Amino acid sequence: MINLTNVALHDVLLVEDSLADVVLMQEAVQESMPHTRLSVAGHGVDALRFLRREASFEDAPRPDLILLDLNMPLKGGLEVLSDLRDDPELRSIPVLVLSTSDRREDVERAYDLGANTYLVKPRDLPGFFALMQQMNDYWFRSARLPQGNKW
C-alpha cells in the first residue's frame, strides 16, 4: 500500500493559449503525473503575474516546473523566457518549452534564452500521456531541482 502523505506534490505552471492543448495537458497530467498540481496561464502576461504573485494571483504556488508555449498573444513564450531569466527570483525555475514549432531558429533562440529543454507537442492524447510520463520520470524522480523553489 502506498502512503500518499509521503508523496510529494509538485506544482507545474502551464503557459498555453490553446484551450484544446490545455485540456489535453490536463488529462495527460492527471493520468501520468497524479501528484502534480497543474496551474494554467493563458498568455505570457498572466504567466508573469502568476509567477510574481501579482493582481489576482496573490496566492499562486511557486511552480517546480514551467511548461511554456511559444506562440501566444500579448507576450510570446520567448519574451516570457527572457523575462524569467532576467529575474533573480524566478531564474532558477526550470522551463520546458512545449511548442508546435520545430523550426531550428525557435529551438536555438529558446536555448539561447535559457530554456532547460525544448519539446515539440505531440499530436494526440497517447503522445501527451507518454510525454508527461517521461517528464515526471525525469524532472520529479531523477533530476534534482533547486532547493529554493518553494515560497
Results as ranks from 00 to 15, higher is better:
residue 2 I to D: 05
residue 2 I to A: 10
residue 3 N to T: 04
residue 3 N to K: 08
residue 3 N to A: 03
residue 6 N to E: 14
residue 6 N to T: 14
residue 8 A to V: 14
residue 8 A to H: 13
residue 8 A to F: 07
residue 9 L to T: 15
residue 10 H to L: 01
residue 13 L to H: 05
residue 14 L to P: 02
residue 14 L to W: 08
residue 16 E to A: 08
residue 18 S to L: 06
residue 19 L to R: 13
residue 21 D to V: 07
residue 24 L to T: 01
residue 27 E to P: 00
residue 27 E to M: 10
residue 30 Q to S: 12
residue 31 E to T: 13
residue 33 M to C: 09
residue 35 H to C: 04
residue 37 R to K: 11
residue 39 S to K: 01
residue 39 S to E: 08
residue 39 S to Q: 12
residue 40 V to M: 04
residue 40 V to N: 06
residue 41 A to N: 11
residue 42 G to R: 15
residue 42 G to A: 14
residue 45 V to K: 12
residue 48 L to N: 09
residue 48 L to F: 06
residue 49 R to W: 11
residue 51 L to V: 01
residue 56 S to V: 13
residue 57 F to P: 00
residue 57 F to V: 05
residue 58 E to N: 09
residue 60 A to R: 05
residue 62 R to Y: 03
residue 63 P to V: 10
residue 64 D to H: 14
residue 65 L to N: 07
residue 66 I to A: 08
residue 67 L to V: 02
residue 69 D to F: 11
residue 70 L to I: 14
residue 74 L to G: 00
residue 76 G to S: 10
residue 77 G to E: 04
residue 78 L to M: 11
residue 78 L to T: 06
residue 79 E to C: 03
residue 80 V to T: 08
residue 81 L to E: 00
residue 83 D to H: 13
residue 83 D to L: 13
residue 84 L to V: 01
residue 84 L to E: 06
residue 86 D to K: 15
residue 87 D to R: 03
residue 87 D to G: 04
residue 90 L to V: 10
residue 92 S to T: 13
residue 96 L to G: 01
residue 97 V to C: 05
residue 97 V to M: 04
residue 98 L to N: 02
residue 99 S to M: 04
residue 101 S to C: 03
residue 102 D to Y: 12
residue 103 R to V: 08
residue 104 R to K: 12
residue 105 E to S: 13
residue 108 E to C: 08
residue 109 R to M: 12
residue 110 A to L: 07
residue 111 Y to A: 07
residue 112 D to A: 14
residue 112 D to E: 15
residue 112 D to L: 10
residue 113 L to F: 08
residue 113 L to Y: 09
residue 114 G to K: 09
residue 115 A to S: 07
residue 119 L to T: 02
residue 119 L to N: 06
residue 120 V to A: 02
residue 120 V to R: 03
residue 121 K to N: 04
residue 123 R to N: 12
residue 127 G to F: 05
residue 130 A to F: 04
residue 131 L to A: 03
residue 132 M to I: 04
residue 133 Q to R: 14
residue 133 Q to S: 09
residue 133 Q to K: 12
residue 135 M to T: 12
residue 136 N to M: 05
residue 136 N to F: 12
residue 137 D to E: 15
residue 137 D to H: 13
residue 138 Y to H: 04
residue 138 Y to E: 00
residue 139 W to I: 07
residue 140 F to S: 07
residue 142 S to H: 13
residue 144 R to Y: 11
residue 146 P to E: 02
residue 147 Q to G: 15
residue 147 Q to C: 02
residue 149 N to V: 15
residue 150 K to C: 07
residue 150 K to Q: 15
residue 150 K to W: 11
